[in-house]
Design a protein around this nucleic acid. Structure first.
Lengths: 209, 209
DNA sequence: GACCTAAACGGACCATGGTCCGCTTATGTT
DNA sequence: AACATAAGCGGACCATGGTCCGTTTAGGTC
């Protein structure tokens, strides 16, 4: 039986005529098993003892694999953390795209934007440690970032905002970043509610401007 | 001869009546010398081979001191980088407070704000590697951060902006952070000029809103 | 100048992220 | 079933940030 997604040169050698989609070659079954074991172990460790406790050696031991395997699967510690983050990010994305209003569709764009702001802020705050560990800047999976950006752009357009909407979306998202929020909340005692209210006001100004 | 800034208990034991300002005890002369040697070496290394090349071991070797000394002086690599950053930050601060307009005083607040935005953005971009190495979040000397925040707050007040000015200042500063700008510029090909223009528009909306 | 003490020093030592490479194994072919 | 081979595996090894502690020294006192 011909595997649907055999790799290019296998296909070529067997004379397969179709230019198959170039996905990354599928993982071997043992590899996939290890990936899952590692993710499960990592999640458990994060839950039990916090992000800090997830050492690459400890993780390997916990999952019963060699250290090399951890790195082959996730490239780096940051990569591993990004993988962990993905679950939450996907969930978030799903809520926005097809969850209940006001975050999900079915209500005025302005309400959705407000809901988005609060939710995103809370999410970023809650996942802060993971986000930080997932790596410096926007190394944070481009996909995740661009989803939020696109969503905000979309809402701004629906609200008839004129100007460089792409930039304005970024500008609205920037103060929601965990680094920024954490600094304000943890170090300066900004109450979360005040932050949310402030952001809402900011959004209003941007839209009405 | 009595040193002006002797430490508390020395003063107490000698019956000194004045409650001297509690500064951190002054550094011993050798310590001060080493600090300077280290900073000089570090600056040289950054200039020559980039921030990455500044390894704590290499730095110690270069400055002709032990590794322990480096850490006693600067606590951590991030601390060292923050120290390096301070120079630039102080310069920036000086330019804003008493430099030539439009960044410095002597011109309408709006113009100053615009100048501030562009300058800060360029500064953050230029110092990005150092900023990143100087540590995660706002570990970046609280002083530096709060100066920019206070300045923006000040300008917003002069512009009669109503609302949570403290938050709005943060919101205006957030998109100028090196992490944000780098992501847009490096990864997404946003032109710096577009970014500057976008920020100006953002500021206008905030002020007029 | 002898002496005292807190501070500073230096480099061995440790922990952790990341690389390397020789051995093992899944998987597809004959 | 035997084989071929690329992918996967594991753990020794390296680099670098950070700690520790026995030794040295600045600088004040007598």
């Amino acid at each position: 039986m011909v595997r649907l997604c055999s790799h290019p040169y296998t296909a070529a050698m067997s004379g397969h005529p179709l230019p198959l989609l170039e996905g990354p070659r599928p993982e071997r079954s043992d590899a996939a098993r290890n990936r899952e074991a590692l993710l499960a172990a990592a999640r458990r460790m994060v839950e039990d003892n916090g992000v800090e406790s997830v050492t690459m050696d400890a993780l390997a031991r916990e999952a019963g694999v060699g250290k090399g395997t951890v790195f082959r699967r996730f490239t780096s510690r940051a990569g591993l953390m990004a993988a962990l983050l993905n679950h939450g990010e996907a969930q978030f994305q799903a809520l926005v795209m097809s969850g209940p209003p006001p975050l999900g569709p079915g209500v005025e764009p302005w309400e959705r934007l407000v809901a988005f702001g609060r939710t995103r802020l809370e999410y970023n705050l809650q996942a802060a440690r993971l986000i930080e560990a997932a790596g410096q800047p926007g190394r944070r999976s481009v996909a995740a970032k661009s989803f939020t950006t696109l969503h905000v752009i979309h809402l701004l357009r629906e609200l008839d905002v004129r100007g460089d909407v792409q930039f304005l979306a970024k500008a609205l998202l920037a103060p929601l970043e965990s680094v920024i929020v954490e600094e304000a909340v943890q170090l300066e005692g900004f109450a979360v509610d005040r932050f949310v209210a402030g952001w809402q006001d900011l959004a209003r100004r941007v839209i009405e401007g």
